[in-house]
């Protein structure tokens, strides 16, 4: 549960366009470019961040569901093992997908970061 939250904070920080603009300002001397980036970025960033946040919270709720059902099964509750395993698998797949998206974004960020201006 802690991992998705940290990922989400990482995402929101990373995709917070003012922060990106700051980063750009650090590397790029002309302020005009940076502010222009920030302006165009902010329009789209809101959608993207909320979409990503939604994905993260979905993964989180799937993981919480699976933890809950596993706890229920281990404490002798009346649950079908198949359901428990399926929910664990679903949480695992969702997390893997989120991780891949995160990796891709980080890769894109690294590449942008490597641009010399």
């Amino acid at each position: 549960m802690t991992i998705p939250t940290s990922v989400s904070s990482m995402f929101s920080q990373r995709l917070d366009m003012p922060l990106t603009a700051k980063l750009l300002e650090k590397t790029a001397a002309p302020g005009q470019v940076a502010s222009g980036q920030a302006a165009t970025g902010q329009v789209q960033s809101h959608d993207f961040v909320s979409m990503l946040g939604q994905g993260v919270s979905e993964v989180n709720s799937l993981q919480q569901q699976s933890t809950q059902s596993v706890n229920e099964m281990l404490t002798g509750g009346d649950v079908q093992p198949a359901e428990v395993f399926a929910s664990v698998q679903k949480a695992d797949m969702a997390f893997r997908m989120l991780l891949q998206v995160r990796n891709k974004l980080m890769q894109a960020y690294e590449e942008v970061n490597a641009i010399r201006i």
């Binding site: 079908q80 198949a82 359901e83 399926a86 679903k90 797949m93 969702a94």
Partner: peptide, 17 residues
């Protein structure tokens, strides 16, 4: 994406019953 898994799970539960 997960609906296929859910459907299969429902069948598993039914067959178990």
């Amino acid at each position: 994406m997960f609906s296929a898994l859910d459907v299969s799970t429902s069948a598993l539960v039914a067959q178990r019953i």
